[in-house]
């Protein structure tokens, strides 16, 4: 039996049902993940752009132009 026969024989509803099932599974997983994160973790992560995390120590000249 070829793959074409197999897929043609399947009810197309199956694809939509599988799609929705996968989505709900992923979505539930993500929501669970988010609800169980600690506040400290989210706070630290959210602040990453504000703390470039680096302290300039001493500026140096790189290249001249003009």
């Amino acid at each position: 039996m070829r793959l074409t026969d197999l897929v043609s024989g399947a009810n197309l509803d199956l694809f939509a049902t599988v799609s929705m099932g996968i989505f709900l599974l992923v979505f539930t997983g993500v929501v669970v993940r988010v609800l169980t994160m600690s506040k400290r973790n989210t706070h630290d992560a959210a602040n990453l752009p504000l703390d470039d995390g680096t302290t300039p120590r001493h500026p140096v000249k790189e290249r001249r132009h003009g």
Partner: peptide, 8 residues
């Protein structure tokens, strides 16, 4: 005249 390049 020249760009400063901070070292982190």
């Amino acid at each position: 005249r020249s760009y400063e390049v901070p070292v982190h």
